[in-house]
Amino acid sequence: MFDPGPIPGKRLLRIRLNGRWREDAVADDQLLVDYLRDTAGLTGTKTGCDGGECGACTVLVDDEPIPSCLTLAARCEGRSVETIEGLAAGGRLHRLQQAFHEKLGAQCGFCTPGMIMAAEGLLRRQPDPSEAEIRAALAGNLCRCTGYVKIVESVRAAAAADA
């Protein structure tokens, strides 16, 4: 079989992924979203567009929600990356997951992981957001199913559950 040869420019990446440190060899040109999905096997993070236009790939890097298709994996060296898979702990859903489930914040569910991570970023810096703040924080995450009505309700419910 054809051997394409070694991939140039790989380096060792050490990141804290969902609370656990790990090391992987990654190419310089690997996007964070591809690292998460292909290398780490965390397919909860979605790809919905050809770059930076939908927010489905939103993850937390050092507590801040960013689109993981717009950053290189190599630039996350030494940083903490959190994905949807890291939220539930100890056999309990995270408050946002609980709220999105109960309030129907997810219909088809494809935008949901990115939406929840964007909302989690908001709640970490503003535990009691107004509706306007919620809408502003989610303005980089497209949803085609809900009209955002129940998404906003879900985030409000999660914030209230935390209080």
């Binding site: 859903l93 946002l96 997951q97 609980q98 489930h101 569910g109 949901t112």
Partner: peptide
């Protein structure tokens, strides 16, 4: 939804 938890957990 009966499959809602699958969606919110990734």
């Amino acid at each position: 939804l009966i499959d809602g938890i699958d969606k919110v957990t990734g």
